[in-house]
Structure formats: structure tokens, C-alpha cells
Amino acid sequence: MVKVAVAAPGEVAREVIDGLVASGKHEIILLARRVCDGQEIKGTTRLVANFQDKADLAQKLQGVHTVLSFVNAVSDPGDAQIALIDASVKAGVKRFAPSEWFLARNDHLPWLASKDIVRKHLEDINKENKVLEYTLFQVGMFMDYLAGPRQKTKHIGRNNFLIDHRGKRALVPGSGDHRLTYTAIEDVVNIVVKAIDYQGEWPKNGGINGVTATLGQGIEVSEKISGTKFSIEALNIDDLRAGELKSSFVPELDHPAIRDLDEATKAGFIKAAYTSLLMALVDGDAVVGDEWNRIFPHYKFLGFDEFISKSLS
């Protein structure tokens, strides 16, 4: 048993927390910015932490073995995670997982620039001597998004990612044969729980790779689950590279960082986000590694066929 700290427990974090609690192996503390009355999670201890105060964080991290960060990279410029990393070193934390949980590279995603700042900080503090073991848990796209309204995750909100489930239509760059990684949230949770118990050294690049397939194949999964053929709108890649989304529609996007924005600002962000995501797909940034797959070779990941059957059950 070790002490695990989960920082900024949001929707994805709640899925992981449920998995850690269900394992019954570890002491789990939640580092949150505020008290959430009536939202206490059985099997955990919630501590209100100041993510700008390294001394406060270090005090709360005393005795912690592993920190899992879910700090919102869209709204935080990196300050909170850098403070969390430095406090972890001061407190003697052994392992740290920064707030990744998405693509392998963020070159086309300026709103996630803080992820690269955090990655560099982790590299820098370990340059001379390893002071903090870490892994970048990268999962690609949650396969669960392909199920649309049938999605059965407990905490993660429904998201479209280029697919308008309500309108039965989808956007693709060019021919739609660009590849990306889809990983079911249950597999992400199971691998993270196993990683906490892993006795070897965490890999720096921590890809969790469920299925790597084309966007077109992902759309076919959504079609099978919905029982409806989708209308596919192919977009010109040169337009996308110029930052222009010339589509007849823009799928809805739900993310905690933009829920409180006014409608005009939110619409602008969503359009820019999809333009950037399409280019990330074109340039191969959405395919993640399989480092954790190789560490746990006997673990069976959910494939498309199993995911479809489970979604329809």
C-alpha cells in the first residue's frame, strides 16, 4: 500500500479515483482548490490546497508516494503543475504523472501549450540526477466518445470529436485515412491502477494504446452503434493548415474549461479547436505509443468489436 495524491480531481480523474478506490490497496488523498460540499468520495480524503503555494503543497504531500495530476491544461498556464512538481520534490514524492491524458504531441494545439512547459520542467529537474520519476500517460482519444448518446462512462461528459452524433454527420481531413489512437476509459483506469503497483521504473513516454485506426474506421464504429449511416464532409487540408475550417457545421464540444464562457467566445474556441485537432490528426500527433502495453503484455485492451457490443448491451 502506498499513499496516492490526485491533484485537481475533475471528470477524468473521477474515473481513475473510482478504479483506485475499488482496488482497495492504497491511501488516496485528493488535492482540490475548494471544498465541495456533498461531493465527498468514499475511500478518499479531500484536502483544500493552494496550487500557487509550494510550501502548502509540500506540506500536504508529506508521505505521498505517487502524484497523479489532472490540472486543467486549457485554463492553467503551467504554474500550478510546476508548483506541484517542485513541491513533490521537496516532499520526497517518488513518482509523478503530469496532466497529459491526450495526444502524443501538442504542436497544433496552442491552448495546451502548458503541457509542453510542464514536460520541459520535468526534464530539466532530472537533467543532472533523477529526482522525480515520471511518466506521460498519453491515451489518444477516449474510445467512449464514439458511442455518442449511448456512452456509459460514469463521470466523463459526452464529446463529439469531429462527429456530430445528433446530426449523424462527421468531419474528416482529406480522405479520412489519417490514423489516431482510441483507448477506452476503462482501459486507461485499469492501466493506471496497475502502474501504481508496478515495481519497475516508470517509462518517461507512457503511451496507453487501445486501438490505432483511421478516423474513418472510428466513424464506422459510431455508425454501427447508432445503427445509422453518417454523412461525411471531407475538408481541404491546405485550408486547415491555413487555420481555416470551411465546413457546413461545427460539432458541439463539451469541456470544463469552456463551459462558463459566453456563447460567442465558446463558439470561436470550438471552431479553432477543431481546426487544430484536424491538423494534429493529419500530422500524426494523435497516435500515441504503446509503452504501457508492452509493460503489461497480458492485459487485453477493449477493441472496436468488443466496444460496440458493450455499447449496445
Rank of each mutant, 00 (worst) to 15 (best):
V4K: 03
A5I: 00
A7R: 03
D18N: 13
L20S: 11
A22N: 15
S23G: 13
K25P: 14
E27R: 04
L30A: 10
L31Q: 07
E40Y: 05
G43R: 12
G43V: 02
L47C: 07
L47A: 03
A49E: 00
N50V: 01
Q52H: 01
A55P: 14
L57W: 08
H65L: 03
H65C: 06
S69V: 04
N72F: 10
S99C: 14
L112W: 11
S114F: 02
V118F: 09
K127F: 02
K130V: 13
V131F: 04
L146G: 14
K154T: 15
H155A: 00
G157T: 08
R158Y: 10
D164V: 00
P173W: 09
G174D: 06
G174W: 09
G174L: 06
G176S: 12
H178D: 10
L180S: 12
Y182I: 11
I185A: 07
I196Q: 09
Y198L: 08
Y198D: 10
G206L: 02
N209H: 15
E220L: 15
S222L: 15
K229V: 02
F230E: 07
S231D: 09
A234G: 01
A234Q: 06
L235E: 08
N236H: 09
D239L: 08
L245Q: 09
V250W: 02
L253I: 14
H255M: 13
H255P: 05
P256E: 01
P256V: 01
P256R: 01
A257P: 12
L261G: 12
K266Q: 12
D285Q: 07
V287T: 04
V287Y: 08
V288W: 10
E291M: 01
N293M: 08
I295S: 09
H298G: 10
H298K: 13
H298Q: 10
K300I: 12
K300A: 11
F307E: 00
